[in-house]
Design a protein around this nucleic acid. Sequence first.
DNA 1: ACCTCGTCGTTTGTATACAGAATACTGAAC
DNA 2: GTTCAGTATTCTGTATACAAACGACGAGGT
Lengths: 230, 230
Amino acid sequence: MTTTSLTTEIGTSIPENLARLIGADITFGRLAAWTRLTEEQVANTYNVSRSPVREAIRLLERDGLIARSSRRGIWVAPLSLKDFDGVYACRIALEALAAEQAARSPHAASTRPAFDRLLTRLRTTLANGDTVGFFEADVEGSEIIYDLADNPTLRRLLLSLEKQALRYRYFAYQHSAEVTALSVNATRDIYARICEGDHARARALTETLIKDIWQSTREVLADFFSEKMP
Amino acid sequence: MTTTSLTTEIGTSIPENLARLIGADITFGRLAAWTRLTEEQVANTYNVSRSPVREAIRLLERDGLIARSSRRGIWVAPLSLKDFDGVYACRIALEALAAEQAARSPHAASTRPAFDRLLTRLRTTLANGDTVGFFEADVEGSEIIYDLADNPTLRRLLLSLEKQALRYRYFAYQHSAEVTALSVNATRDIYARICEGDHARARALTETLIKDIWQSTREVLADFFSEKMP
DNA sequence: ACCTCGTCGTTTGTATACAGAATACTGAAC
DNA sequence: GTTCAGTATTCTGTATACAAACGACGAGGT
């Protein structure tokens, strides 16, 4: 049954696994914005009771993927340009900080092989048009940086922001012909500066890159949201 | 009974109120670091069942005030210099951002009266040695800034960080003879720049102020943590 | 005396039962 | 035909019941 798959998944905790699964459904658009969820429906879907579902909902609410109104129900969080800007304003500041702290790590140099593998993945997925794989590789790269930064608080905040950010990026990707991909070269440079311990340039380049992603994604989103309500 | 007080409190939701009460107990040292909690004990204390207690625990865990280990129990989160540095690294970046965004708000100018009232409170509480009142006023000032910034994501992140930061500041205050108070004049200047819409200076001054608080608090904490384990 | 294994108590995690609130629906009046 | 009131249903929020895991304690062996 689905129950066994839930407990055997890596999280080993049902609420965390539920949040991961439902969160992925939201991020990749399988659950549309404003979709109403009921606890019982989710519980039936995954063959668990409402208790772990409630905990999963709390987690998703804190990650900004689900909106709750007391006693009135649960919806998949809406998307808006304002929310997108808010998320990215925070993300720019914190990603820059993470890159700087990662570059200061004594283990930065020894991470080069992992970065190189990741760059290869970014190039191949991009060449093959595997956008989901590309995004996944990008996210993994971010997590390596968070680990290097060795700051659990920063890590927690960025992981939360990353889910929302990825949701907007994937949404933009689906609604625009062109792939709004980040620059692999810019990513390569950032990785290199981190490995060298050049924290100033690592921070500056990261800030620029995230701002670029913000702007390019924003154009697509702005088009969509303006034609939605003319 | 305590039950009624829980529901009549502003949050109107039992888990939120529980989290607020327990969170305050942790922040102000009434619950010491590493203290073990059990769900049933908390439930009995507040005359509620374990269900809302579990939700409150999740909230406190996300705010970094409680540490959980799956199936092994719940403790009041430990304090450490490294954690403190991590929290403040994030806080510096985000408070600066919030001050900048607040200064860009069209409602910034009309907030001057609220800021003035707050400054009076800061001065009187400081003069009377009412340190708790002083911290509370400072926190309220921050929340006004978050509201002006009009960025729910930023607000959510900062509120979470603020609880941890205040815990460290209160801890330092208790363990040092001198009051490690922030500079009222610096706060006044920041409020003024925000009201004027001078976002560049608002950001720069905020960054300086939070860094100063970080350093002065850090000295006290460093003394304590070094003599604790020599 | 120390280490190991088994049992017991405690505590978390999950399922279910129940109460109350919010919304949707039905019907009647204007 | 529209609107308002009353009822019914559905869903959340809380309480309770049950199962399984972890740790502590003690007995037995080396």
